[in-house]
Design a protein around this nucleic acid. Structure first.
Length: 240
DNA sequence: TCATTAAATTGTT
DNA sequence: AACAATTTAATGA
């Protein structure tokens, strides 16, 4: 339906608008900042709507923004023309990414594209570094972010090695429900079985089958257009 | 608010 | 890949 192959060039800046107060409330790292810092950050944040299949970051492009998902679902992958395409992770609401690249003022090392209509916020590199230079709270957040993501990537390697489709779905889901990296998800993750298939690299049918198994095991509850996790610990350890 | 219709998503083969 | 069944979203009375 929205094959992640079709991609138009992203023009985030031109379509971007200021952030709404209600949207800013949902951003966790804004909460700990000093009033002056928060004001500057909110003033700097740009928000844009992203269409399915649209590329937000391209491998090799110079980093300009630190991005966060306000709503929708993005995919972080490494599908260059050469080499095998690898999906690193999905990015549900509450997820922020690109800090590594912005930190080092480098080019993006992966593609970010929308799996469905999404709302994305961007903080300019200048303001990112400004916060980094003066806010300890912000530094703590970034450190934790980097640390948790490192753990995710290590887990992702295991998932890629795993042959059991049920296990791949289970672990992939557990990653999306990461409470620190994706606080916006909460109890219910809005994701279709088709989208989940794109993320874990399985057909929709097989995903459906796996979800049924996981539901019968009491690990998740499948709903129309999404699902909730009942036992994150067992989901994370599935197939071990 | 309710009924109708279209679109999206799911369950199954 | 295709199909039927189900759920949601949109529309207008």
């Amino acid at each position: 339906m929205n094959p992640p192959t079709a991609a138009a060039p992203a023009r985030l800046i031109s379509r971007a608008r200021p952030i709404l107060a209600a949207e800013a409330e949902s951003i966790v790292w804004l909460r700990g900042l000093q009033p002056a810092e928060r004001e500057r950050a909110i003033d700097d944040l740009r928000v844009a709507q992203v269409a399915p299949g649209e590329l937000l970051c391209r491998v090799g492009r110079p980093a300009t923004y630190w991005f966060g998902v306000l709503d929708g679902l993005l995919k972080m992958s490494n599908d260059t023309a050469l080499g095998m395409p690898i999906t690193f992770t999905g990015l549900p609401p509450g997820g922020w990414f690109g800090e590594g690249t912005v930190l080092k003022r480098e080019a993006y090392r992966y593609n970010i594209q929308a799996l469905r209509p999404s709302v994305v916020a961007g903080l300019s590199m200048a303001t990112f570094h400004w916060l980094l230079d003066r806010s300890i709270v912000f530094n703590r957040f970034i450190t934790q972010q980097l640390n948790e993501r490192l753990g995710q990537f290590i887990a992702a390697r295991e998932i890629d090695r795993m042959t059991d489709p049920d296990g791949r779905v289970a672990r992939g889901l557990a990653a999306l429900f990461h409470p620190v990296l994706y606080p916006g998800v909460g109890g219910l993750l809005r994701i279709t079985q088709q989208e989940l298939g794109y993320l874990v690299g399985l057909s929709r049918q097989r995903v459906n089958q796996a979800l049924t198994v996981l539901q019968q095991a009491g690990l998740i509850a499948v709903e129309y257009g999404g699902l909730r996790v009942l036992d994150l610990e067992r989901l994370r350890a599935y197939g071990r």
